[in-house]
Design a protein around this nucleic acid. Structure first.
Length: 119
DNA sequence: TAGGTGACGGACC
DNA sequence: CGGTCCGCCACCT
């Protein structure tokens, strides 16, 4: 039997599914692992992620389309900004992201679709 | 043990 | 579009 995954592990596993150049929100991740309304807990799970990490934690942003900027992150927010820029995701001076254009859709993983706005 | 805090989000103004 | 408030719930005094 497979041992039950902890909340943190479920979050990290889901985040690893986000393809390069795409973004997901904290609330979206929470919903995908069956923890509707627990967006804050997703934030804590990513906070506990040891850095550097192969998990693309930088692809998780706020539903408002911004990078969560707070002194308590001690710079990881600025690292996130740089990693996103390196992936080709434009980050405006005010921190705004084109979330609507690069939003990750878990169900869109069945190959390329003609007319896909992300292609 | 109780109360404040926060890598959120949505409602309201 | 931005500022505030409140519900949410694990963490940390």
């Amino acid at each position: 039997m497979t041992p039950p995954l902890s909340f943190d592990q479920r979050v990290w596993r889901m985040v690893e599914q986000i393809p390069p150049g795409r973004l997901a929100t904290y609330g979206q991740i929470a919903e995908l692992i069956g923890a509707w309304g627990c967006a804050r807990q997703v934030g804590w799970a990513l906070r506990r992620l040891p850095l550097p990490s192969s998990t693309p934690w930088h692809r998780v942003v706020q539903a408002s389309g911004r990078i969560a900027m707070t002194p308590s992150r001690e710079g990881s927010d600025w690292i996130q900004r740089q990693l996103l820029l390196a992936e080709g995701i434009p980050v405006q001076a005010d921190g705004r992201l084109p979330l609507a254009q690069v939003r990750w859709r878990p169900d869109a993983s069945c190959g390329t679709v003609p007319g896909d706005p992300a292609s």
